[in-house]
Simulated assay, not measured.
Amino acid sequence: MAWRCSGGSNADLIHNMERNGLINSQRVKEAMLGVDRAHYAPSSPYEDSPQPIGHRATISAPHMHASACEALLPYLQPGSRVLDIGSGSGYLTHVFANLVGPTGTVIGVDHIQPLVSLAEENMAKSKEGRELLESGRVKFIKADGRKGWKEGAPYDAVHVGAAAAEHHKELAEQLKAPGRMFVPVESGWMQHIYYVDKKEDGTVVKERKFGVQYVPLTDAPEE
């Protein structure tokens, strides 16, 4: 259904995803309506397809952002702490911030400094985005996402926006108990989304969900 979700405006795009069953929660719908994708996608912002943002990176298709929000929603409560690895354009970081509210915190991590700067610039295009940055509710950091960001741990939710070559132990360790990670992982020539849940007793359970195609979670490209 994703191919039928593109629209002429941000509202059209979100409503089309809801109509096609890709958004099922009113909270997710409102959070995505509150972020104009045109501030983050340099071209065709309301098409339901990934868009290049430079540095061999992309902003994922809107339906993948909706899927991540729906999957993590039980852990995106007011006051939650969220780690967004491979934050890229900063779009989903902003949506997460809407979901966790004024007492929550979202940390966006990218390994390419120009993308960290781009996310900050994109978020500053709106009054709401500027307030998120100025209040410290959203922070963008340059770091190796494969190692997470221990300084802000533990996290209620971790989102990984690039395909990992393996299940990185450090990321699961930085989850709260309970907590959930949404991560694409390579398996042979395929990639699959996994939900990685840390239970209250600290047990980690990995569940493979559906096939995807993401850019890889790798070292930063050479200058």
Rank of each mutant, 00 (worst) to 15 (best):
A143C: 11
F140N: 03
G152D: 02
H94P: 03
K125N: 08
P114G: 08
E151S: 13
H94E: 12
A124I: 11
G152C: 02
D144S: 07
E128D: 14
N98L: 10
V95H: 08
I112T: 11
Q113V: 12
V100A: 02
G136R: 01
K139V: 07
G145C: 04
Y155R: 00
E134G: 01
A119Q: 04
G101D: 05
F140T: 01
D156K: 00
A153T: 01
V100K: 03
E134Y: 11
E121P: 04
R137H: 08
V138M: 02
G108A: 08
E128H: 11
G101H: 10
I141E: 05
L118Y: 12
A119H: 10
K125I: 09
T105C: 12
K147H: 14
L133Y: 06
F140I: 07
E121A: 14
M123V: 11
K139M: 12
L115Y: 06
V100T: 08
P102Q: 13
G104P: 02
G145Q: 11
A97T: 01
S126E: 11
Q113N: 10
M123Q: 11
R130S: 14
I112P: 09
L132F: 13
E121H: 13
K125Y: 09
K139C: 10
V106C: 07
E151P: 00
G108T: 05
E120A: 13
R130C: 14
G148C: 06
I107S: 05
R137F: 03
K125M: 12
P114T: 09
E131K: 09
G148S: 06
G145H: 07
P114F: 12
T105V: 14
L99P: 07
A97D: 01
R130V: 11
H94A: 15
K127G: 14
G108R: 10
L115Q: 08
A97S: 10
P154H: 02
S117P: 08
L99T: 06
D144W: 07
V106F: 11
H94W: 08
N122F: 06
T105R: 15
D110V: 03
A153S: 11
G145Y: 08
K142R: 15
N98I: 08
D156P: 04
E128F: 09
F140G: 02
Y155E: 00
